[in-house]
Design a protein around this nucleic acid. Structure first.
Length: 880
DNA sequence: GTTGCGCGGCC
DNA sequence: AGGGCCGCGCAACG
């Protein structure tokens, strides 16, 4: 019976229901791409939103156990002792589930020393006293004792958590033959195997109910136990204490002191942004609309917090107005600046202090009014400065005084977060909502922020970020990232000359070849399939040709190059080789086509470097990506050959660091063998091979060199014996042996790698030589897959990141020095450990000297930084 | 049209 | 079961 006038309190046992969901749902279908299992979370939330939608509670809470330990285990150590340790895959899900509930503004209750069901019992009791209809949802049968006219139990059926059975007093009587208050008596007699509480032998539910009905109460029954005849009577008399103990343990506590009373549990609107964030992290998609539907709230309606400070009303100005505004604010220490960009050129400009803001439409007059100030050292903060720096340079303004870019600072603080604009940062670091125009409406109801307001928010976000930035990270921002930004802007503006003629002829050639290969491939299998479709290929390989199944993927079986090579070895078939050739030809053609369409009217390709594009500190390159241009085989180098020296320049120069990551490893580990290798001038892999295999360097065979080379590079990535054996196509035992020999000679390397991961586990982050940090929360995860992935990444991060730092330092120093030496030569490309420079006529010697010197002295390591230069009319010829 | 996946290019 | 990226085509989804 529910009284609709009363408020409804719904209290849920989170632990028991999530645990049931964990076993009900296949773990394989519910895990994120980095290996976090989510089946328990998903199953619980799915049940939970259905429940909330159906019951429309006015008050709501979810209770969790804190640990296996409780007052019951104190009284009776065997309590639940038969339960095996809950799987690690499950444990890790509970904190995440609690995060989800927190985002949904659902109160999570826990209490040390008691179980979730005691919290349920306490709240149910209080709720009834305070006039609530109470709904209790638990997977533990002991909660049946809570059922009254005002308390209904929702209990998962055997089918799983999606079907809940309603236990009213009548339903309990129907099922057990006694009212709910007597259920613990029945359970005490029968015992509860899941709690490791044995009952009276030979006594089941039927007998227990019969006795309790006959004697009226458990006390009466126990007092008059001698009246029961037969073997069961004897059993009962022998187990009186057991029954009393069971009864005392299965009574739920109704007077636990809690942080919240029923009245405090009124349902709250969900935190739309937080829910979206955590669901995105857990890769839940279909659940999101269901949560909004059940819990109320509009997905678009992320509760806007009130700004802590009122935004100054932006004043529209002209050139003279801007000049006057600047004159009035000369004493101000720092300004927020926003230049909106349209078609690559400045459109509007906004300037802000915390108290005052001004904005204007860009014009030659405005440019002239602002130029001296923009080109001065006056500190200015931007969001996404690179885009604006480029637009300003196109308008003949060379920005100076860049003191912060919020995107960079936000990324340095949280390199894993996809904060790609000011709105994200305002939400995350100010806990406010940036006014945004509704793009779905022709005439937006809400106005978007104006340039001056954007500048004002940028200034405030900067302050919030600075508060959080550790000193070492702040120095990475000012000493590495901000100087790099200006250099990248110049590189992007310069672009690189690419020959359309070379590309298009090659593309045609590859197209013809791919078609021919495809025809041949079709002939070998007697039909035409789409060779680019992994799904159709699986049909051909594993069904038609009946080849053995390869490595499993999410959607079937792998058809990647490694798998095809394995198949070719064990079950040779002409189709396999043709497929590989076809892949190669079409891949190259794809690359060529995308490059060709990216060539601008002036014959140059302009990439965009994403300075926040990696978690380690590396750059990334997009639209098009110029950091993955083929090089590894002879033919593909024809693509590099299409990257040419531009008109008015003399030649291309390439400069790359040789083995920079291994050098950093030598530096960080202090391994004397490795340091000696780099100081000896001997080829690294030959030197290492000689040590590992115990031969003279001159006797190191190519096979030995290949092996130690793979091992050395693999080290930096956390390679396992399995991975090494696979790559080298040798037995795992041999790979293991190789690793052992390697570490026997270069033991400090292993010690360093181990200790750096351990340090990261303690600190929660790794650090590069220059202080760049990367957090690794998963190093302490109970989920083994997650933890081991984090360990490998943590092992690599300081090495890859330090290399990135060094290259950035070299890059901007080269750029600055070329400019200050009045050289026309310019850096065009950065490919992680390589630079491509366009050299102006007559400048080769000077440029080569600057490039090699600045790359060589970008960092002071215990081993030298070796730089290789190359020269040629095109990128292929300039390579070496 | 968007999204996830498999695959493969680079360092 | 090897760290960091970007982007293509296919297939499924809306």
């Amino acid at each position: 019976m529910t009284d609709s006038a009363k408020p409804t309190l719904l209290i849920v046992d989170g632990h028991s229901l999530a645990y049931r969901a964990f076993f009900a749902l296949p773990v394989d279908n519910f895990s994120t791409k980095d290996g976090q299992h989510t089946n328990g979370i998903y199953g619980f939330l799915s049940m939970f939103v259905n429940l909330v939608k159906a019951e429309q509670p006015t008050h709501l809470a979810v209770a969790f156990d804190t640990s296996r330990h409780s007052f019951r285990t104190d009284q009776y150590p065997e309590y639940k002792a038969n339960r095996s340790e809950s799987p690690a895959e499950f444990k890790g899900q509970i904190p995440l589930l609690q995060d989800c509930l927190a985002a949904m503004n659902v109160t999570v209750l826990t209490k040390e020393g008691v179980e979730a069901d005691d919290i349920l019992a306490t709240l149910a009791t209080q709720g009834v006293e305070q006039g609530f209809n109470v709904l209790v949802c638990s997977g533990d049968r002991d909660t049946i004792q809570l059922v009254t006219d005002d308390v209904t139990l929702l209990y998962p059926s055997v089918q799983g958590v999606s079907q809940l059975k309603r236990y009213t007093p009548d339903a309990v009587v129907e099922k057990y033959g006694l009212p709910p208050a007597n259920y613990p008596d029945i359970a005490a007699l029968v015992g509860e195997t899941s709690d490791n509480l044995p009952g009276v032998p030979k006594v089941g539910e039927k007998t227990a109910v019969k006795w309790l009905t006959q004697f009226g109460s458990l006390d009466e029954l126990l007092t008059r136990a001698d009246e029961i005849k037969g073997v069961v009577g004897g059993n009962l008399r022998e187990h009186l204490d057991t029954v009393r103990r069971n009864r005392s343990l299965n009574a739920l506590l109704r007077d636990v002191e809690l942080d919240a009373a029923p009245a405090d549990l009124g349902t709250q609107p969900i935190d739309a942004v937080a829910v979206r964030d955590i669901f995105a992290r857990l890769e839940f998609r279909t659940l999101l609309p269901r949560v909004f539907e059940a819990m109320g709230g509009d997905p678009a309606d992320a509760a806007p917090a009130e700004p802590a400070v009122a935004a100054p009303a932006p004043v529209e100005a002209d050139a003279a107005g801007l000049t006057a505004w600047l004159a009035a604010h000369t004493a101000h220490p720092e300004f927020g600046v926003t230049v909106t960009v349209e078609g690559g050129l400045p459109a509007r400009v906004g300037l802000a202090t915390l108290e005052s803001a001004v904005e204007a439409t860009w014009s030659p007059d405005v440019a002239d009014a602002l130029r001296p100030w923009l080109e001065s050292d006056t500190p200015k903060v931007f969001t996404d400065a690179k885009t604006q720096v480029k637009a300003l340079r196109r308008a003949d303004v060379v920005l100076s005084g860049l003191a912060c870019d919020t995107l960079l600072a936000g990324w340095l603080l949280r390199p894993s977060l996809p904060d790609k604009n000011l709105a994200d940062l305002v939400y995350r670091f100010l806990d406010e909502k940036l006014p945004e125009a509704d793009p779905t409406q022709l005439v937006p109801e809400t106005e978007g922020a104006t340039p001056a307001q954007l500048a004002w928010y940028t200034l405030r976000v900067t302050a919030a970020l600075r508060d959080e930035l550790p000193a070492s990270v702040a120095s990475v921002l000012t000493d590495i990232e901000l100087p790099t930004l200006g250099t990248l802007a110049a590189m992007e503006l310069a672009g690189v000359a690419v020959s359309h003629e070379k590309l298009s002829s090659f593309s045609t050639e590859l197209g013809t070849r791919a078609d021919g290969i495809a025809q041949e491939a079709y002939a070998t299998i007697g039909r035409e399939v789409n060779l680019g479709s992994p799904k159709q290929l699986q049909e051909v390989l594993f069904e038609q040709l009946e080849l053995p199944k390869t490595r499993k993927t999410k959607t079937g079986y792998s058809t990647d190059a490694g798998a095809l090579a394995d198949l070719q070895e064990s079950h040779p078939h002409p189709f396999l080789d043709l497929l590989l050739q076809h892949r190669e030809a079409t891949k190259l053609r794809q690359i060529i086509e995308s490059l060709d369409t990216a060539i601008g009217g002036d014959g140059r390709i302009r990439t965009t470097y994403v300075q926040t594009g990696s978690q380690t500190g590396r750059l990334s390159s997009t639209d098009p990506n110029l950091q993955n241009i083929p090089i590894r085989n002879e033919e593909s180098r024809r693509i590099r050959a299409a990257f040419e020296v531009g008109a008015g320049y003399e030649t291309l120069l390439t400069a790359d660091y040789s083995q920079i990551e291994m050098r950093i490893m030598a530096h960080l580990s202090g391994d004397e063998g490795l340091i000696e290798a780099f100081n000896s001038g001997e080829d690294l892999h030959r030197f290492v091979g000689a040590r590992v295999f115990g031969v003279e360097p001159s006797d190191v065979t190519p096979a030995m060199r290949t092996k130690v080379k793979a091992m050395s590079y693999g080290l930096v990535y956390g390679l396992s014996a399995f991975g090494l054996s696979k790559q080298l196509r040798i037995e795992q035992a041999e790979a293991k042996q190789l690793m052992m020999e390697y570490f026997a000679r270069f033991g400090a390397v292993r010690d360093y790698l181990r200790s750096s991961v351990e340090q990261a586990r303690i600190d929660g982050y790794t650090e590069t030589i220059f202080g760049r940090r990367r957090p690794f929360p998963d190093l302490t995860s109970p989920n083994r897959v997650l933890r081991e992935n984090a360990e490998r990444a943590a092992l690599n991060a300081p090495i890859q990141g330090s290399a990135a730092d060094i290259m950035k330092i070299a890059l901007f120093r080269i750029h600055d020095e070329l400019a200050s030496a009045d050289l026309a030569s310019r850096v065009l490309l950065q490919i992680h450990d390589e630079l491509v420079v366009e050299v102006a006529p007559g400048e080769w010697d000077a440029v080569a000297e600057i490039v090699s010197a600045r790359m060589g002295d970008a960092a002071e390591l215990t081993v030298p930084l070796d730089v290789q230069l190359g020269r040629g009319d095109n990128w292929d010829d300039a390579g070496h």
